[in-house]
């Protein structure tokens, strides 16, 4: 599979503070790439570097197989739709007037603008002033502006930020639809749940470093789910194992591998602890994420 985005040792420092540290990013073509990380982990800075809005301190960026340089940027940019940090839109103008500005900026035809507005379901609100839009409508307008140029790559920074569950679901469905049309979507979020439902490839950033990159399945394989031992005598069980916590069903242990689990069950059974069941806890992406990032300031 071709990579639409590839970075090599991408680094950004602001004075002494390293915001992005040696990032090797690979975004395969036609996927929804979920770029996860806590607030301040370097997601927006990385995206800005990919768009040429911020200069890297070190490292290289390749977009569509071409190194990103000031010359190539001008040629590549028309293929990239983006929304960084906050949705753009002049509040004193209507949605349609804003779209016309984007159209004039990029030399687009009316059909492209109308299609982009229809895709984000804003056609019937296009004549309202943007300052009267809800946050969800502003986000959708921002996405329409990114889509109007018929991009091959969409780079969206927290597009669901501040949206209600219905708005989040709407954007999620839209992005999945766009990926279905062959557009590569790179979407950042600190909301694990929504990324879990739309991304086929994940990149997890913590303190500016990539701590995981790959498919959702690979991510789950990297993490050991907690072991739950169902017992009516958790106090007795605690005397035979270290680091366990009491849960309604019995006790719960983290980081116990297969062989260690077998030994543990044997030890408890030998100590006459009544064991009614042994199972692995259901893992959400959030659990895996927390596990990988050491529960450092995540939502």
């Amino acid at each position: 599979m071709n990579n639409v985005i590839a970075t090599m040792d991408l680094t950004k420092r602001f004075k002494e503070h390293t915001v992005v540290d040696g990032l090797d990013l690979l975004v395969p073509q036609g996927t929804v790439y979920g770029f996860l990380g806590p607030n301040g982990s370097g997601k927006s800075t990385t995206m800005k570097m990919l768009l040429g809005l911020t200069r890297p301190t070190k490292g290289e960026i390749e977009l569509f197989g071409r190194p990103l340089t000031p010359v190539s940027r001008a040629e590549i940019l028309p293929s990239i739709g983006s929304m960084i940090e906050e949705p753009p839109g002049y509040g004193h103008l209507t949605g349609a007037e804003n779209m016309r500005i984007v159209g004039d900026m990029l030399g687009l035809v009316d059909r492209q603008i109308e299609r982009a507005l229809a895709t984000v379901r804003l056609t019937e609100h296009k004549d309202k002033l943007v300052r009267n839009y809800s946050l969800g409508m502003k986000q959708r307008l921002g996405i329409a502006m990114a889509l109007a140029r018929d991009p091959s790559l969409l780079v969206l920074d927290e597009p669901t930020n501040g949206l209600d569950p219905a708005g989040i679901e709407e954007i999620r469905t839209l992005l999945i639809e766009l990926a279905g049309q062959g557009i590569t979507v790179m979407v950042s979020s600190h909301l694990l749940d929504e990324i879990d439902k739309m991304a086929s490839v994940l990149g997890i950033l913590a303190n500016g470093r990539m701590i995981f990159q790959g498919t959702r399945e690979r991510l789950f394989n990297q993490s050991i789910p907690d072991l739950i031992i169902e017992t009516s005598a958790p106090d007795v069980a605690l005397g035979h194992v270290e680091g366990a916590t009491v849960v309604p069903e019995g006790i719960r242990l983290s980081g116990i591998e297969r062989d260690a689990a077998a030994h543990l069950v044997k030890r408890l059974a030998t100590a006459d602890v009544p064991i009614y069941g042994v199972r692995r806890a259901q893992q959400s992406l959030e659990d895996v994420f927390m596990d990988l990032t050491g529960r450092g300031g995540l939502l």
Partner: peptide
Amino acid sequence: DIEHSGAGWTLSATAGH
């Protein structure tokens, strides 16, 4: 001011302006 309030600097920069 409209460029600050409307994120116009970034919008223009991503269009190559």
